[in-house]
């Protein structure tokens, strides 16, 4: 159920669902008067997480459901992403070396690097039904609800 504060969306494991995810982020942030710069960061981080799940999360080609839940309070936004893919903790993936020379630079791993840097906290939980990633973005003073 979607209340004013909490939003849940179920998406198919397809990159075509990114547009819908973007719409949901936009609606959630605008309803809460979250600054467009913060919205941009949440949008990008979720895009990276969702893309990783769709591209690398499954060992089969069956349709799967990815559930994204948004929760806001006065100080922060908390987003959880649940998938039923194989166990994978993206936080344990090798860190990207952003100081590497151009010839050594690869795009792999860059997504999760962006996620970590754009948000304030990223946590992983392995659950019986699959993976859960929790993203937390603190709000700036002027965005906080009184």
């Amino acid at each position: 159920m979607n209340t004013d504060k909490n939003v849940e969306v179920k998406l198919p494991n397809s990159l075509a669902a990114l547009a819908r995810l973007h719409d949901v982020v936009q609606q959630f942030c605008r309803r809460r008067s979250i600054h467009p710069d913060t919205e941009f960061k949440i949008d990008l981080a979720l895009d990276e997480v969702f893309t990783n799940i769709v591209r690398y999360g499954y060992d089969d080609t069956h349709p799967h459901e990815i559930v994204v839940r948004f929760k806001g309070n006065r100080d922060s936004v908390r987003i959880s992403i649940d998938d039923d893919g194989r166990p994978f903790n993206p936080l344990l993936a090798p860190a990207v070396d952003i100081t590497a020379a151009l010839s050594e630079r690869r795009v792999g791993g860059l997504g999760i690097h962006l996620v970590r840097r754009l948000l304030d906290q990223v946590r992983y939980q392995r659950r019986p039904a699959g993976n859960r990633l929790i993203l937390i973005k603190r709000l700036e003073k002027e965005e906080k609800r009184t």
Partner: peptide, 9 residues
């Protein structure tokens, strides 16, 4: 307006 890591690639 927006670019993700795959676009940077």
């Amino acid at each position: 307006e927006y670019i993700s890591s795959s676009g940077l690639g």
